[in-house]
């Protein structure tokens, strides 16, 4: 839409040449107010994120309390060994990335789909009530969800098994069957998060100018056409943002979901173990700052590589959607 508009704010060509030479301070002076408006964010991220980032150094030390961050002995890559030598890193990486990909895709498709339906359906009351309902699960912690999932799936008195038995079928041992959890975990994730994402898309749809639809209607477009030709293309920037955020954290699993719902059931691990649960299990008994940081660093580097690739790809397709 606006990519065609010339970048007026950047000034004329000659002006740009000067600003490049004069650099930062020239810009600072010219855009004083904008810079000032950035101060809260700068302070926030400096304190909350960048200063604590020195802690990454923990990953390379054998921590002790007297030495603290900088005087504990340097051990190189030793803290990474519990990841790399576990023989599970490949499986864990595949699981983590795999689940996240499925989460991202299925959630976004459903969210866009329902956001569109909700934005178009008539009946204010219906709209309000249903929106509230699909949003509510976001408040439920996975600890509580675990109790509900257990109530539904357990072998002896679970809803599903009671039903199967009354239908004369065999009981199904959910908690002893790894593969079904690939589906159940995705359902749990969707249950909790679809409402949240739907709100994001709904807000984006609300921001679309009515004029476009007006024009389309005049051209004789039906509802489906309006949706596919106007709404969906205009949701792409929002989708890209959600995607980029999800992709950056692709090595970080939904720890609470996996940990609370599966608990310590080793039988299911081959299908349900992700990097976060593995690290937690390994370190829970004796929290080691060095190893914990090392695991985090692995996730970060992996995420950074993936995100660089994704952003590059987005940039190639449409530079306007790229994040940076």
């Amino acid at each position: 839409m606006y990519s065609k508009i010339s970048k007026k704010g950047g000034g004329t060509l000659s002006n740009e040449g000067i600003s490049r030479k004069k650099g930062f301070f020239y810009e600072l002076k010219r855009k004083k107010i904008l810079f000032m408006m950035l101060i809260p964010a700068m302070v926030f991220f400096a304190l909350n994120s960048y200063l604590p980032m020195v802690g990454i150094y923990y990953a390379f030390t054998k921590f002790n309390f007297q030495g603290g961050l900088f005087k504990s002995p340097f051990v190189g890559m030793d803290n990474f060994r519990f990841l790399f030598e576990s023989g599970k890193l490949k499986q864990l990486t595949i699981n983590t990335v795999g689940y996240n990909v499925v989460f991202i895709l299925s959630a976004n498709i459903l969210e866009v789909f329902f956001a569109i339906l909700l934005s178009r359906v008539v009946g204010r009351m219906f709209k309000k009530v249903s929106q509230s309902i699909i949003f509510l699960p976001y408040f439920i912690s996975y600890v509580v969800l675990n109790a509900v999932v257990f109530a539904i799936l357990n072998c002896d008195s679970g809803y599903i098994n009671t039903m199967l038995v009354s239908l004369g079928a065999e009981r199904f041992d959910f908690y002893g069957t790894p593969w079904v959890w690939r589906i159940i975990l995705v359902l749990c994730y969707l249950w909790k998060n679809v409402g949240y994402g739907t709100v994001v898309y709904l807000a984006a749809i609300t921001g679309i100018s009515e004029e476009y639809y007006e024009a389309a209607r005049i051209d004789g477009a039906n509802i489906i056409q309006q949706i596919t030709r106007i709404t969906i293309p205009l949701l792409v920037p929002t989708f890209v943002i959600l995607l980029i955020f999800a992709v950056g954290g692709i090595m970080r699993g939904q720890f609470d979901l996996f940990y609370q719902v599966i608990r310590n059931n080793g039988v299911l691990f081959e299908a349900t173990d992700i990097l976060d649960t593995y690290v937690y299990r390994s370190l829970k008994q004796n929290f080691d700052v060095g190893m914990g940081t090392a695991a985090g660093l692995y996730q970060s580097v992996f995420g950074l590589i993936i995100i660089m690739l994704t952003n590059g790809l987005v940039k190639k397709l449409n530079p306007d959607y790229a994040l940076f």
Partner: peptide
């Protein structure tokens, strides 16, 4: 356990994943 902390950490995970199901007869 500092001399074998890495191995111990890995072992803890193995115990949860493989030993506990054996103990539970699963």
């Amino acid at each position: 356990y500092t001399p074998y902390q890495i191995e111990r950490t890995a072992l803890m995970d193995v115990v949860t994943q493989y030993l506990i199901p054996i103990q539970a007869g699963m």
